[in-house]
Amino acid sequence: MAVKFSFLIVEKSYIIRSGLMQIISNFYETGVVNELHNVDTLLKKLSEVNADVLIINAKLIAAVPELILDIRKRFEQLKLVVFAGTRREADEFPGFDLKISVDEPKHLIVEKIQSLINEIKPKKDNNLSENLSEREKDVVKQIALGKTNKEIGEALFISPHTVITHRKNITGKLGIKTVSGLTVYAILNNLIKIEDAV
């Protein structure tokens, strides 16, 4: 499955928020985009939505500069983007990964955000290859036979915890989550016979 990023936009004005949403929605890598109107619940929201990129209005930061330090400390992987009315205003905010200003043309903003996305992509992109390893095929087979994690672990001499990790990776690679879905996959790929499926 392609890697998608989660964005969080913090901005009071609906007009500006929807403008930002519009820009963000153009990227292939865009997954969920969440919105916040103010910074009151920002920390809570950040952990809730597991954001990769935070885009925030400079004016909202100016009132609470210590908040950004706090976010930096707590969410090390998070990319911070500040936007302001003008480029000079945006420059007044150190500690951000990217600065954009409202007066910039579309192509500049798009290029900047794309390069930011490219920067974080490799870190998340560890299972783009959709081919299952031999071990993963064994696990799919067992799932399709209706075995529990514990039983699979016993059959393959691995811990249930490892089974869970395999299952996560399998779902990530195939885009198939349910047991019945994985069973269909197993039968179509001749990992098990249709008669043996649960």
């Binding site: 195939l174 885009g175 198939i176 989550k177 019945s180 879905g181 996959y185 179509l188 790929n189």
Partner: peptide
């Protein structure tokens, strides 16, 4: 979602 992926990909 699974059904979509199965038909599209597999």
């Amino acid at each position: 979602l699974d059904l979509k992926n199965i038909i599209i990909k597999y």
